[in-house]
Structure formats: structure tokens, C-alpha cells
Design a protein around this nucleic acid. Structure first.
Lengths: 163, 163
DNA sequence: TATTGTTATACTCTATAACTATA
DNA sequence: TATAGTTATAGAGTATAACAATA
């Protein structure tokens, strides 16, 4: 009697005969999912989630940000921002200060702990990205970044790259 | 008294001072999200979801697929496949036939209705993708696809492109 | 004893609406 | 009257475990 492994469709056969897998759009979708899995897994070792890292990175700049600013910059729902900042505040990575010019708003600031966490996350991000792009040479990597930057310039102006 | 619009941080200021937005990994993440939103919105006009389209496209090949095959090929949880196929079967797009060689498994087949739905989805996908990539010339588009294909070749062999 | 498909269920994630305090 | 932030809650999406049929 045939073993299950023999009746199962082999991966090699699945691979062929799937033209969708050659479409740039689907490749982009899958590549993004794989990268996010890699990144979440790597960050988990440092007890961080990707979203925490994005928030910390956004708050590291010189422009003081409110929760609404974060919401718009990262594309997060304002109610989601509340819980993310709640968590980062509990972990002493972020502090909420009232904005004296408009007491409805906070000014979110990174603490020293937050800066250390960000530094850890940046190392993880750099490593994961390097591994993810390892099959491309420097020129290909630069072209990929520029192509994505060009596409996103229209859709999300924050992504415009100067070089 | 200052209007809210004046105290709000302007988008132009948010854009600057966010180095994460220049990282290839983050650009890839955001680009994928934007593309998916575009695609879901466009497909909704044809009463379809992206996942339905992926499943129909996978079933259009010559290789007969079971639900487990679909699960592995598209990276969906087997229990998710059940409900997706349930839905597509209700809509007469897909039919479940028992595999005579192994009566635990189905052979999933596209109906004529399913092929028509797939054709509609393919037009939508082509349009959305073209608009998304519009800022790139043909060479840049080809390079982008090849770069993503190269990256995914290691991680998801289904994505290998011959050209 | 293992696998395919199924169900029930729990869990996470996100979005909606209503509230407060400030403007 | 409008906005920033908060809370409670509902909804969608996903995953886990247990089960029936078949191998």
C-alpha cells in the first residue's frame, strides 16, 4: 500500500505551474511576509516586537511627536497607538509629557532605556535585512531600494530617499 | 487662539527625520501594505478578496491540488483553507471531488464560473500592478521583479522566474 | 499509527463608538 | 464646535486542539 508521502503532491510539482509566483505584485507580497517573519522572530530574542521598534525609531528623531503624529507617520490606528505607548511606557522606554502649548497632546520622548532598546533593535534590523538581501550584490540592493523608494514617493512621502 | 491645524505637526515635518523610511526592509513592508490595500479595494468592486484570487489562480494550473497542497503553496493554515474553499464552493467557483487514489483527500477543481472569476481578477491584478509600478520604466520594473525573484528563490522556491 | 479534512474554540488584532479634557 | 487621547466593545482573522474517515 502506498505511503502517504508518495501520494502527497511533491513541492517541486507545486512550484511549477503557478504563474502567479512570477508576478511582481505577488513576489512583493510574499517577500514582505517572509521578511516580517524573519524580523519578528529575531526581535523576539530581544523581547521586542516590530511595531515597538518602528515606534522607537520614529521617536528618535529631533521632531517632537504626539500620538496622532505617530499614528499618521506609521499608519497606525490612534487606539492602537495608545496600547503600544502604554506598553512602552510600562517598560520605561517612552515617557508621556503634556505639550504645554496644547495640553490635549502629549510629547512622546525616548528614555535612556528606550534608546538602548532602539540600538538593540537597529542591530537586529540591520542583520535581518542583510541576510534577507544577501543574494543581491551591492548594485542590485541599491537599485531595489531606489525602486521601492520611487514607488512609495507618491504614496507615502515620508519614504523619499535623497541619494 | 491657535487653530488645531496650526499646532498639528505638518506632514512635511513628519517626513523628514525618519531614517527608518529609507531602509529597504521598511520600504518593502510599506510598499507591500499599500499594494495590498489597492488590490483589495479594486477586487472588492468585483466582489472578490485577494485570497480568493490567489486560490483560484493556484487551481488554474494543470497539477491537481488538494487542500493541503493549497495550504503549503500559498502559506495558508489548513483550517483557513477549509473556510476559503467552503466559500468558493458556495459561490460555485470551485468543486470538491474525492481523490480516488486516496479518499481522505479532495481534488479541487475550478468550475466555469471559477474561471470567469479568475479572469476578472487577473484583469484587476494587472491594472493595479501597472498603476503601482507606473513610476518605474520597463527596465526598472524588470529589475525589481528579478531582484525579488532572486531573494525569494531561496525562501519560497515557487517564486523562481525563468527569464 | 499517521494523515486529510473538519469543527469548535480561544486568541489576537483591529476598528467603532462613546467619553474626557482641552482648544 | 472640534481635536487628542482614552476606554469598552465588537468584529475579523488566525491558530490550537480534538475528532472522523481513511491510509
Amino acid at each position: 500500500m502506498a505511503r502517504a508521502a508518495e501520494s502527497r503532491t511533491p513541492a517541486s510539482k507545486l512550484r511549477a505551474d503557478f504563474p502567479l509566483g512570477e508576478r511582481t505584485g505577488y513576489l512583493l507580497h510574499k517577500a514582505s511576509m517572509v521578511l516580517e517573519e524573519d524580523f519578528e522572530r529575531a526581535l523576539a530574542a530581544v523581547d521586542m516586537k516590530a511595531r515597538d521598534f518602528f515606534v522607537l525609531a520614529a521617536l528618535a528623531g529631533d521632531t517632537p511627536l504626539s500620538q496622532q503624529d505617530l499614528s499618521r507617520l506609521l499608519g497606525l490606528d490612534p487606539t492602537t497607538v495608545v496600547s503600544v505607548i502604554d506598553d512602552l511606557e510600562r517598560r520605561r522606554c517612552v515617557a508621556r509629557k503634556r505639550n504645554p502649548a496644547d495640553r490635549r497632546r502629549y510629547i512622546l520622548t525616548l528614555t535612556a532605556t528606550g534608546r538602548r532598546a532602539l540600538a538593540k533593535g537597529e542591530r537586529v534590523a540591520a542583520d535581518v535585512e542583510a541576510a534577507f538581501l544577501a543574494e543581491l550584490d551591492r548594485t542590485e540592493q541599491a537599485r531595489l531600494r531606489q525602486a521601492l523608494s520611487k514607488i512609495m514617493a507618491e504614496r507615502w512621502p515620508a519614504a523619499v530617499v535623497s541619494s
